[in-house]
Every structure is written in C-alpha cells, then in structure tokens.
Design a binder for these strands. Structure first.
Lengths: 148, 148
DNA sequence: TTGCAATTGTTGCATTTGCAACTTATAATG
DNA sequence: CATTATAAGTTGCAAATGCAACAATTGCAA
C-alpha cells in the first residue's frame, strides 16, 4: 500500500474524517434553517440548553454546550439584546447570574425543535431503522466514555 | 413528555447533536496535535488532499476538503510561505495553478498519518470491533447518499 | 481573620473569517 | 469573430473569534 492509497483511505474511510464531514454539513444545514430566525449556532445552543433547564449560570450553560466563557458571555449578550433571555441576579452569589428565557424566548422553542428534527430526519433518512439504532448506541457509548 | 424532557432528549440523544459533539472534540484533539507542527486544521486538510493526489488546482483541493475558494487561497498562501507546497503554472490554463508538495511537504506525511491514526484510535477505543465496522458502514452510507 | 487561591464573568486587542467585489482568463453563443 | 457568460483565484473590509489580562467575588487554610 503506497502513500497515495493510505492518504485516500484515511480521508474517505476513517470514522474521524467522516464524522467531521457530516458535522460540517449538519452545521451548514442548521445555519441555513436558523437564518430566518436571525440566530447563529451558538445562540441556538444556548437556547437549547435553557429549554432543557432554566436558571443556569453562564458557566453551567457553557459546560453543557461546550462553549468557552468569553463566547458564552457574548452569546448571552446577543440573546439578551434580542430579548430572548434575561440575566437575573443569583441570591447565593454576587459574581454569577442565573439565566432565564423570556416569554419570547420560550416561544422559539417549538421552532427550534422543528429545525433540529428536520435536520436529524434528513441525516438519518438514508439508513435503516436498525442502523439508526446502532448509530445512536455507538455514539452514546463514545460520548459517555468521555472521549478526551 | 413535557418540553424540558424533549429538549434534553434532543441534546443528548439525537444523532446530529452527538455527531457535532464528537466532531468538536476531534477538532480540538487534532488541533492540539498539530500545534507542535505549527499547522492548523485547514492546512492539515490541504496537505492531506495533496498527499492523496498532487497537481490539483486550488478549486479541486477546496472541493475535496470542503473549503471555500477564499479560504483555499489563504491556506495555500500560508503553506507556500512555509515552503511545504508550491504553486506551479498550469500549461493548459493560465488562470489556474497546479499545487505540489515540496520535499519538506512530503516529509510531513508520516507525521500527519501518525496524528490522524492516534486521534482515530482514541475515538474508537471504547467501542467493539463489530461496532467499529457498523459505524464505518453507516457513516459511509450517509456520506455517499449525498446528505444535503 | 487575614491572606492567598480559585471562580465567575467581562473586555481589549490582534488574528481569523466570510462576504462581496474584483481581475484575469477561458468557454459559449450568436 | 465579437460579445457575453462562466470559471479561477485574489483581496478589501467588516464582523467574528480567541487569547490573555482584568475586576470582582467567594472559598479555603493557616
């Protein structure tokens, strides 16, 4: 097996590369869908985290969706400016905020679910039910193992 | 099933989200490894494409690794400055270049393979051989179907 | 309780990114 | 041919990003 073949095999057959390819297409699909809501991917992530659980601190949100602190600050700034979320003071600590969805923020929930379901459906449409099950199991296994 | 539960299920159980999570960890793992070579992800991608096949045009490279034209230009600028690749004139067309690895560029090949193998191995280490096979099959199926 | 360390969040600034406009060159069409 | 359309690559500029430094607060340990 020469170097040429090796490189091609790596690029087209390795799980890592394929996952990166699929992920970047997922991103552009979601971005496309989010455009009409005027949201970007990070804002989408923060909203999803808050739809799951409100009253989180910024650090907690960042941990949930893997966003560094400075990016969390700015994303929350943007969402607050759009009046989708609000910072409330934390009674227990004066150095952190508790983040809540506004009514307007709650209202975006269904739209976000539609988007994520649509993209997921599209992603999974070409594989069988059995394979879907397998894929989910495997991905969960990788993630729950930490993968770091 | 209330909204809370739905959101959590989407974030933690949907294939799309999980793939995005894994992909972002792959990126940071690779980035980490590339640091000591002084390369970034895009430069890594271009080098991989050229290790697979030399003499491509910039557009062809971009298509192979999903990089927009302007980014391809800049990445190739950077790699040329590092003397890892070179632009050669295309005899067939004066508006495109043919890109080749320099000796120094060829020499990075083995190091890149080591990195990608290491990251892949790490990714797949927690799943069984059967699951690895399943995962590869499924990912290939999704990609070959176009997924757009 | 005092002093040091760690946490939480923000921000200045340099680098990177992405869009759109641009140049040059080739292809297509009448 | 002449004209128009398309393609390949580059670049200016505004916006987004990431690092590192920062202020403010809290925890901890002597």
């Amino acid at each position: 097996m020469n170097k040429q073949t090796t490189a091609e095999k790596i690029r087209t057959n390795s799980a890592g590369w394929m996952i990166k390819m699929i992920s970047s297409r997922l991103d552009s699909n979601i971005k496309q869908e989010l455009k009409r809501l005027g949201l970007d991917l990070k804002q989408f992530g923060v909203l999803m985290a808050l739809l799951e659980e409100e009253g989180l601190t910024q650090t907690e949100i960042g941990k949930k969706i893997t966003l560094p602190g400075y990016a969390t600050t700015r994303t929350i700034d943007a969402l607050e400016k759009k009046q989708l979320i609000e910072r409330r003071t934390d009674e227990r600590s004066r150095r952190s905020y508790r983040i809540y969805l506004t009514d307007k923020g709650h209202a975006t929930g269904p739209e976000l679910f539609i988007i994520i379901n649509k993209v997921n459906k599209n992603l999974l449409s070409v594989i069988s039910a059995t394979e879907r099950k397998q894929l989910t199991t495997i991905l969960q296994k990788i993630l729950s193992a930490g993968f770091a």
